[in-house]
Amino acid sequence: MGILFLVRHAQASFLEQNYDKLSALGEAQACHLGEYWARRQIVFDRVCAGPCVRQKDTLRLVSNAYSKAGLKFPDPLVLPEFDEYQGEAVLEHSLPGLIENDQSIRALHAAFKSSSGSAGRRATFQKLFEAVIGKWVRGAICPPGVETWLEFCSRVNSGLAKFLAAGSRGERVAIFTSGGPIAVAMQRALQLSPESTLQVSWMSRNSSWSEFLYAAERFTLSGFNSHGHISDPAMLTYR
């Protein structure tokens, strides 16, 4: 029986011009994760990351912590199947029309635009984002040139099948990815509906990991959203 660790990237630069880079807090989260695993002698046979900078840099900082502890960490692969869904593209293509034609989206957008302070902007944007992405998951909006929810799930499941089948029996492996692919893995393990899968995607904390047991056709959840490396509540983030 193999063990898969699915790791959500550490905190990225939310609401900044370039989201796809770790914040200072995110870098600290990733370092703590690597140090925590290294202290416990958690050794991996293979690791990979999605193509996003935030995913690869989380892996890199964990690897650095292993090196400092004198432990080996596998050379990583980068697999595009573990990229996050195209949330920014969904918003860019769909939001103008939704603001014009959907009263609830118009109200959420107005609340975001009038919000102030980091906490207020984060909270109001998240409500807007969840509402728009929910429509995309249900197929109510299909932006041109953007993969559908079903295509996204198929991509992630294809990546899981390919990566897990490439190794030997009984390995411990890790994939550094994002909340969406982790939710798809949860869907695979628990047979969740699309709506429940989306709700799970909002629950993954930055730099947390979820564990799955796998063998042949078996894929079973062992633990979700672990964050024992974070002792300071102020360092626990979702965005």
Rank of each mutant, 00 (worst) to 15 (best):
L15K: 04
Y36I: 07
H109M: 01
S116G: 15
G139F: 02
L33A: 12
A89K: 10
L190M: 13
A166K: 13
Y238A: 07
S178L: 11
A10C: 04
F212Y: 15
F176D: 04
D45C: 02
R122T: 06
V184L: 14
R8Y: 09
P51C: 11
L190H: 10
F152T: 01
I3Y: 03
F5T: 00
N64L: 15
L128Q: 01
K21Q: 12
V156M: 03
A215V: 08
E27S: 07
K56F: 00
R40P: 07
P144K: 15
S63N: 11
D102K: 07
Q126N: 06
A119D: 10
A131G: 13
D45S: 10
L95T: 05
S23W: 05
L15V: 00
A216E: 14
L150F: 02
Y19E: 09
Q55P: 08
E92H: 09
F5E: 00
A174P: 04
S23L: 12
F73K: 01
L22N: 03
P74R: 05
A216P: 04
G34P: 09
F44D: 07
A123F: 02
T220L: 14
V78F: 12
E147Q: 09
E81V: 00
L192D: 05
G170F: 03
N18D: 14
F224L: 14
N225C: 06
F219L: 07
M1C: 05
G70R: 12
Q17N: 12
M1I: 10
E92I: 00
A140E: 15
Q11M: 08
F5M: 05
L160A: 10
L95S: 05
K68Q: 14
Q126G: 04
L164M: 03
I182L: 15
R60Y: 03
S23R: 01
M203P: 00
G87E: 10
L59T: 06
S115V: 09
W202R: 04
F73S: 05
E92D: 09
E195A: 13
R54D: 06
R121Q: 15
L98R: 12
R239P: 00
W209T: 02
A38L: 10
C153G: 12
G97Y: 12
L150V: 04
V47A: 07
R172I: 04
Q191M: 12
S154I: 00
A119I: 12
P74A: 13
L77R: 14
G26H: 06
L164C: 13
G228E: 07
A234Y: 01
S67I: 00
E100C: 07
L95I: 07
A216D: 14
C52T: 06
K113C: 10
Y238G: 08
G167K: 08
K56W: 02
Q55K: 06
C48R: 04
E151P: 05
A28S: 14
S226Q: 11
I141H: 08
P233I: 00
G145D: 15
R172F: 01
E130G: 04
A185I: 02
A65T: 07
E195C: 11
L128P: 11
R39H: 03
R122C: 04
D83M: 10
R106S: 14
A65Y: 00
F5W: 03
